[in-house]
C-alpha cells in the first residue's frame, strides 16, 4: 500500500489559516491503514484545528468527510454537491488523491495534509518499510522474492556491492543488505543457481525516468 505520514499540525495551521471554510477530506484506503489520513485522523485534526482557531478568536467553519477513495471518479463525485460551500479542501489522502481531487474540483484550492512516503508494508505495529518502487518491470522471480530495486540503496542488479558487510548495508548498519537477503533466500529455496545468472541490463524506460507513466487496458475499457 501507499505509506504516508502526518504533516506536523503547525505546518497545517499555516497552510489553512487564510481559509474561512475548510473541508478536511480523508480517504478510506491506504492512508487509513497506515493511520495517517483515515476517518479517525480527520476527526482528530478537525477537532484540533477548530480548537486552535477558536482560541485565536478566528471564526472558521471546519467540516469533516471521508471518502472511500480519492483516486476514483465515482467516490470523488460524492462531494460535488457540497464542494462550493468551502474555500479550500485539506486532503489527507496520498499525493494521488490530492491531485485527483484538485483536477476534479478545479476552482477549489487543494492542500495536502500528509506527506506521501513510499510503497511499503506494515512490518510491525507502528512501523512501515519500503518494498516496491513501481519500476514497471518486476524482477522478483529471479531474486527470491526480494526486490533489489527498492531494498538496495544502489539498486544493484548483480549484487552485493563492496559496501555489504555482515549482512548489512554501508549506508546504515541497521539496514539489511538486500543482496544478502536474496542470496540467503535463494539458498533456502535450493535455487542458488539463479544467483549465477548475470542479470541483463534493466529496461529503465518503464520506471519514472521514462517520464510520467500510463497503463492502458483496452480489454477492460467500455
Amino acid at each position: 500500500m501507499i505509506i504516508a505520514s502526518k504533516k506536523p499540525i503547525e505546518e497545517i495551521i499555516q497552510e489553512v489559516k487564510d481559509y474561512k471554510r475548510l473541508l478536511i477530506l480523508g480517504c478510506n484506503e491506504c492512508v487509513t491503514v497506515c493511520e495517517a489520513g483515515g476517518k479517525k485522523e480527520v476527526e482528530v485534526l478537525a477537532s484540533a484545528l477548530r480548537m486552535h482557531f477558536i482560541k485565536e478568536g478566528e471564526e472558521k467553519k471546519i467540516d469533516e468527510r471521508t471518502l472511500e477513495r480519492q483516486c476514483d471518479h465515482e467516490y470523488l463525485e460524492e462531494i460535488r454537491d457540497v464542494v462550493d460551500q468551502y474555500d479550500a479542501i485539506l486532503s489527507l489522502a496520498c499525493g494521488v488523491g490530492v491531485q485527483f481531487t484538485a483536477e476534479k474540483y478545479h476552482s477549489t484550492p487543494l492542500l495536502p495534509g500528509v506527506n506521501t512516503c513510499f510503497l511499503g508494508a506494515n512490518e510491525q505495529r507502528g512501523m512501515w518499510t519500503e518494498r516496491c518502487q513501481a519500476c514497471g518491470s518486476c524482477v522478483l522471480a529471479r531474486t527470491g522474492g526480494i526486490c533489489p530495486i527498492s531494498r538496495c540503496a544502489k539498486r544493484v542488479m548483480n549484487g552485493p556491492c563492496g559496501g555489504s558487510g555482515r549482512g548489512k548495508c554501508e549506508i546504515n548498519k541497521e539496514l539489511d543488505c538486500a543482496w544478502q537477503l536474496i542470496i540467503d533466500r535463494l539458498r533456502d529455496l535450493g535455487r542458488l543457481d539463479d544467483y549465477e545468472i548475470v542479470a541483463p541490463i534493466k529496461d529503465w524506460s518503464t520506471e519514472r525516468s521514462g517520464g510520467p507513466r500510463k497503463v492502458v487496458r483496452e480489454d477492460v475499457q467500455v
Binding site: 506536523p8 499540525i9 503547525e10 495551521i13 484540533a48 480548537m51 486552535h52 482560541k55
Partner: peptide
C-alpha cells in the same frame, strides 16, 4: 502533544 501544539 496535540493540545500543546494548538496552545491549549
Amino acid at each position: 502533544k496535540i493540545l500543546d501544539k494548538i496552545g491549549v
